[in-house]
Design a protein around this nucleic acid. Sequence first.
DNA 1: TTGTATGCGTTATCAG
DNA 2: CTGATAACGCATACAA
Lengths: 352, 352
Amino acid sequence: MTARNKKLTVADVARAAKVSKATAARVLGGYGVTSERTREAVLQAAQDLGYRPNELARSVSTGRSGLIGVVVGDIENAFFARAVRGISDTARAAGLNVIISNSGEDLAQERALVSVLLRQQVQGLIVAPTDDGDVAHLAEAMASGTPVVTIDRWVEGLGADGICGDDRAATAALVAQMQALGHRRIAYVTAIRTPQPRLQSLAQVRIAAVRERIAGFLSAAPAGQDWHERVHTNATGAAAIDAIVARLLSETPGVTAILASDSLVGAEVFRALSARGIALPAQMSLVAWFDADWSRVTVPAVTVVDQPTHRFGALAAERIIARIGGETGPARHQRIETPLIRRGSLGPAPGD
Amino acid sequence: MTARNKKLTVADVARAAKVSKATAARVLGGYGVTSERTREAVLQAAQDLGYRPNELARSVSTGRSGLIGVVVGDIENAFFARAVRGISDTARAAGLNVIISNSGEDLAQERALVSVLLRQQVQGLIVAPTDDGDVAHLAEAMASGTPVVTIDRWVEGLGADGICGDDRAATAALVAQMQALGHRRIAYVTAIRTPQPRLQSLAQVRIAAVRERIAGFLSAAPAGQDWHERVHTNATGAAAIDAIVARLLSETPGVTAILASDSLVGAEVFRALSARGIALPAQMSLVAWFDADWSRVTVPAVTVVDQPTHRFGALAAERIIARIGGETGPARHQRIETPLIRRGSLGPAPGD
DNA sequence: TTGTATGCGTTATCAG
DNA sequence: CTGATAACGCATACAA
């Protein structure tokens, strides 16, 4: 308990307890065997001095750091924040510590972060890869013996376990439901960056979760209709989204419903619609991914595709823990159901 | 570049480059001096083998981990998420890595996390202490040579640098402004947990930021009026907040404005008001702390006390970096201005 | 400029 | 059950 300024080592405790370094290390490290008497003496000494084990030295010695690394696109996004929470909760329960970092959805940054984490000797990596066409850094991590789990985003061929939503099926079902409500022209709005403002081809989408959603969206298109032109990209920031909404509203025949690919896009679309005096759902329906706080606060509340994100994180942590524990076998792809939460923003198409 | 399965060490690189371990270590570690020729040979060998330095071993050797630890109340709260982002951004720029953890606003958990972080040899700690009456663990960290910076929450007497808002002054000014708008009965709603549903005394509030806000709130009370009864506590979760709003609405004479102590409380209060058909600001005004996403999405948009949270984080990181760099001197208390962003939810009191 | 030898704080092996 | 002593991977004082 005594405050001190120099770091104490097992040697110091050993000296105080009048035992050898090895014995002190045994009781402090909780391994090997010692008599009850010496055990107590050592613990007492450690207590008195205020000894605190050096985990780094322990890691170097054992080769196990007890660390797992996490790379997300944006910790400020509630989706990732909650996922991180899920990861942390189950990792900590398993005695693992977590290092979190932010790629900002930038590939170069992601590479750099993975490298840093590997140098920190993380025993496993949970990543939301920003570009599933360029995952050499992840493959290399796996090749060098550090297991990788992707979260929210499955990467075909990488061989890493992945936790993600049932994006394609859920979207197809959602669009079918919307068509039953009379919606014939639906727009999809996403933050994915492309050269043109509309999607040219699915291959432009390097994030599987979004690609699958769009695939589900396109699969619902009636024969002969090209829905690609209904997929609006580059929806990053208020100005861009406002412009997209403006474009949408001036189309003829009019779009009657909007799908927002994440909760940030959803919020801005809602705002742009409100600002223009568009009534939801009378004039326009809106559905967004992720049940963010704001979705239930607006009037009307917003229909969302609920992603059980905390569970995404928990499952990802479970997977990485299993792999760290030596589990072998082919990559496991876990698809989590993402049920629709129906709220006021989704209604019948106008005039239907 | 070659994939391998065993971890490589300087020794391996040295062997491949046909130099001594020390020489290899020098060029790989970027210290000491070497000839250009051997330098290139070593780098080439490292490249070929796919060598990756072990930062933990380096840390043990140098005594510097390059890590700073962060303990926040809730990473899912946008306030903390953004603060963490600010911390990470400037820490990384200074070559430091960040370990983030969640106390869940639980003191025991906070203590445990601080302990874990210290064992991980973090060189500094940035903490949002959940109880400023019990900071022995932080004092101990400082005493043992690990500097501490508190964020959002100043702790008197701890001796740690602190970054926080100008809570008291900003609140007093805000309340004055509201009084000028005719509001005579204002309620303050906070998630702070107390035995009773109303605040009995300021000392019950163990988080300085909130205490200061309430102090500012109370200081605006006209002589003879006890505003304590207007401070509603335990506002955690939708049900509790709904009950508080219900109580508020049934008071006579009626409350005409509500202050929500954080953005989660604010969102739920807004929702509870909407659900009851209360018109903002015609029947009730609302002001919340933190400019969360949802604040600009509602109709009307919500007036907020803007906390430049990314800057909170950046400044906290700067402080901890300075202290790690050896800066001495008394604890620095930096108060950041938190300007009001006036939006539709704040209007004149009804009938004024 | 390079190599040798030792230390960092821990674990872990091996006698005693 | 305990105590020397050698790792772990890297840094560093000192010698060559």
